[in-house]
Design a protein around this nucleic acid. Structure first.
Length: 185
DNA sequence: CTTATGATGTACT
DNA sequence: GTACATCATAAGG
């Protein structure tokens, strides 16, 4: 029997806990007969008023509204006009929070990944938030998508936490640099 | 391996 | 008008 998708109880935790515990979990992307399985190995936590780097730092806007919605939904945004970034909404409804998926290791479906990012070396396919979404064919249409339904199009299932995860500074931000809210294997 | 830089769309002030 | 939760490429070591 297949492992069930992670549910709302998991995502409703504090964003830092979700970000850490997502390390080692599996992200599965399925379209028709094609499937990609990757293991998450890099995440970052973003919160609200206590997080100057967060889109939600100054309250609700049309873009960040999904960060305030129910946990377990996807928050997608366009980065630098070109790249789609995928987050998973955390915290109880009304309290903003999301985990940015920044990196993963290929487990299955490397052929489809290569089709999505032709000419790219395998070791560079999934090591960045924009690369990850391109490799898995995930775009803005997934904004607000509920990850907890078990729909095979995209799902996350438990892995096992590595014995040791590292906590470091987040990447690519100018504010909130002192917070150690980036998690890697 | 490292650092530097242009590309590119839009949310927000 | 400004600032991006980035990436591919080029040049140097």
């Amino acid at each position: 029997m297949m492992s069930p998708a992670l549910g709302p109880d998991f995502y409703e935790q504090h964003t830092l806990d979700v970000a850490e515990q997502l390390i080692g979990c599996y992200l599965i992307r399925t379209v028709d007969t094609k499937q990609i399985v990757v293991q998450i190995n890099e995440t970052e936590a973003y919160r609200g008023a206590d997080d100057p780097a967060s889109h939600a730092h100054r309250g609700v806007t049309p873009r960040n509204e999904p960060m305030f919605n129910r946990a377990g939904r996807i928050y997608m945004y366009l980065s630098y006009g070109m790249h789609h970034c995928m987050n998973i909404v955390t915290e109880p409804e009304g309290q903003p929070g999301a985990v940015l998926l920044r990196g993963a290791a290929p487990i299955e479906g490397i052929e489809w990944i290569r089709q999505n990012r032709p000419g790219v070396a395998d070791r560079l396919q999934l090591n960045g938030p924009g690369k990850l979404t391109k490799a898995l064919n995930i775009d803005l249409s997934f904004n607000r998508y509920n990850l907890c339904t078990g729909s095979p199009s995209i799902m996350i299932i438990p892995g096992h936490l590595p014995s040791e995860t590292k906590r470091t500074e987040r990447i690519g931000i100018s504010k909130g640099r002192s917070l150690l809210w980036r998690f890697t294997k």
